[in-house]
């Protein structure tokens, strides 16, 4: 039983997540060359999880329970990130992959996931260094040192920080001082501290 607003939200969100899921399944087909039957199993279970999660999300949103990144479930506030439909789809897909792929296919899949993560990390670190460089005019040595320092203490959430670069050319991401400051000179330190406030 969804009300009209929840139905409209479902219509709006379903194709977005379906398209994301399709992208993952195409990639998986390239990497693991699954049989038709395996593809059917993965599609079926992940699509069912998607439908369930998006319905729930639309329902909560229509009920006004999703606000400023916080969802209220049974009176308990939870971070929106944990209940976003995609997390549920991802979990089901991972489960289904572990269940239906052969060991060899699974090894290929895991290696590909590692490669992608590493590529994303490198690219995000490069973009963060570039943003810091625009504000602080780093030397080449400093750029290399900050890049290495970022990768050494990398946090997944910093990938999201890169999005800020699209919003504003003056953007400086919030990053821990201990990762950046040891590599700056006195002038750069004061600009950095001012920007982090």
């Amino acid at each position: 039983g969804l009300n009209a607003q929840a139905k409209a939200l479902l219509q709006q969100y379903r194709p977005i997540y379906m398209s994301k899921l399709s992208g993952h399944l195409y990639a998986l087909r390239e990497v693991c060359n699954p049989t038709r039957e395996q593809q059917e199993q993965l599609l079926e279970s992940s699509q069912a999880a998607l439908e369930k999660a998006v319905r729930e999300y639309a329902k909560q949103m229509a009920a006004g329970k999703i606000n400023r990144g916080i969802v209220v479930i049974n009176g308990m506030a939870q971070m929106q990130g944990q209940s976003e439909p995609w997390d549920a789809v991802r979990n089901e897909l991972d489960k289904s992959i572990a269940e239906h792929l052969t060991e060899d296919q699974l090894a290929l899949y895991k290696q590909d996931a590692r490669d992608r993560r590493e590529f994303r990390r490198q690219a995000a670190a490069t973009n963060l260094v570039s943003a810091i460089d625009k504000q602080l005019s780093l030397t080449e040595e400093q750029r290399d040192a900050v890049h290495a320092s970022l990768l050494k203490s990398w946090q997944e959430s910093w990938e999201v920080a890169v999005r800020g670069l699209l919003q504003s050319p003056q953007y400086l991401p919030q990053l821990p001082d201990k990762v950046i400051v040891p590599h700056l000179n006195a002038n750069q330190k004061s600009v950095w501290k001012a920007a982090q406030r």
Binding site: S19, L21, S22, G23, P34, T35, R36
Partner: peptide, 11 residues
């Protein structure tokens, strides 16, 4: 992205 459709694997 076109919806994913299962197909026969490459030979």
């Amino acid at each position: 992205v076109q919806p994913f459709e299962p197909q026969d694997p490459r030979p």
